[in-house]
Every structure is written in structure tokens, then in C-alpha cells.
Simulated assay, not measured.
Amino acid sequence: MISTPEYDLSTATWHKSSYSGGSGGDCVEVADAHPDLVPVRDSKVPDGPHLTFRGPVWKAFLTSL
């Protein structure tokens, strides 16, 4: 995980996980179009904090699931 104050995500296009149900439960969103970075946030708190991972770290996380 890296610190993200230098990245402007105000115009990011966020995508909800395909595993998220329509019941408004726990949902994760990721933003694309950021070279080598994967911004992640809680869909229930879109203006809240987010985490940003380097691409290889995110890939390793997904692989481990």
C-alpha cells in the first residue's frame, strides 16, 4: 500500500466488485486508468478515505484469494 495525497482521484471512474450483491452490503470499488496503481475504496463511503496499491501488490492479493 502507498500513500496517495499526490494522486487526484476526483475524476476517477470507480467499478464495484462483481461479487457485490444488490442488497447494499459490503462493497469494494476499484478505479482504473491509473498506470501501475489500483485505488480501492468502500462503495458505501465514496467521499471517504481510499487505499492505493501498486499493481503487482494488488495482483498478488487477488491471486492469494
Score class of each variant (00 low, 15 high):
47 D>I: 00
7 Y>S: 01
43 S>M: 11
6 E>Q: 15
19 Y>A: 11
33 A>K: 07
49 P>I: 00
65 L>N: 12
3 S>N: 13
37 L>Y: 02
59 K>Q: 14
5 P>R: 13
34 H>A: 00
42 D>S: 05
54 R>Y: 04
51 L>I: 06
13 T>L: 11
52 T>A: 15
13 T>Y: 02
36 D>F: 02
51 L>R: 02
27 C>N: 07
58 W>V: 07
60 A>L: 14
36 D>Y: 02
31 A>M: 07
63 T>P: 03
11 T>N: 14
48 G>A: 01
45 V>I: 10
61 F>W: 14
37 L>S: 01
28 V>I: 15
33 A>M: 02
47 D>A: 10
56 P>A: 11
15 H>S: 12
55 G>A: 13
2 I>P: 00
53 F>Q: 04
2 I>N: 09
45 V>T: 09
62 L>P: 03
41 R>G: 03
12 A>K: 08
12 A>F: 10
33 A>V: 00
34 H>N: 00
35 P>E: 12
47 D>N: 13
59 K>D: 14
55 G>C: 03
65 L>T: 15
40 V>G: 02
27 C>T: 08
21 G>K: 07
8 D>A: 03
54 R>H: 09
37 L>E: 01
45 V>M: 03
57 V>M: 04
38 V>A: 06
14 W>G: 08
30 V>G: 06
10 S>D: 12
5 P>V: 10
43 S>D: 15
14 W>Q: 05
61 F>T: 11
5 P>M: 09
62 L>W: 07
18 S>L: 06
1 M>G: 11
65 L>K: 12
65 L>P: 05
28 V>S: 09
3 S>F: 07
32 D>S: 08
54 R>K: 08
20 S>H: 07
59 K>R: 15
52 T>S: 14
9 L>P: 00
22 G>R: 08
43 S>P: 11
13 T>F: 02
39 P>N: 03
44 K>D: 10
55 G>N: 07
40 V>F: 01
32 D>P: 00
18 S>M: 03
53 F>G: 01
9 L>W: 07
46 P>G: 09
2 I>K: 12
35 P>M: 03
27 C>L: 09
39 P>T: 01
36 D>N: 10
8 D>T: 04
61 F>P: 08
16 K>L: 07
61 F>S: 10
40 V>D: 00
61 F>Y: 15
29 E>R: 02
16 K>P: 04
60 A>V: 08
29 E>A: 07
12 A>R: 06
46 P>M: 04
60 A>E: 13
40 V>Q: 01
52 T>D: 00
7 Y>M: 03
47 D>S: 12
48 G>D: 02
2 I>F: 03
32 D>N: 08
38 V>W: 05
52 T>C: 14
52 T>H: 03
33 A>P: 00
53 F>E: 03
40 V>N: 01
62 L>S: 13
11 T>Y: 08
16 K>D: 06
11 T>Q: 14
14 W>N: 06
48 G>H: 02
51 L>F: 10
43 S>L: 09
56 P>Q: 11
47 D>E: 13
47 D>T: 12
65 L>I: 14
14 W>E: 05
17 S>H: 12
22 G>F: 06
22 G>D: 10
24 G>H: 12
12 A>L: 05
38 V>T: 11
17 S>F: 13
36 D>S: 08
17 S>Y: 13
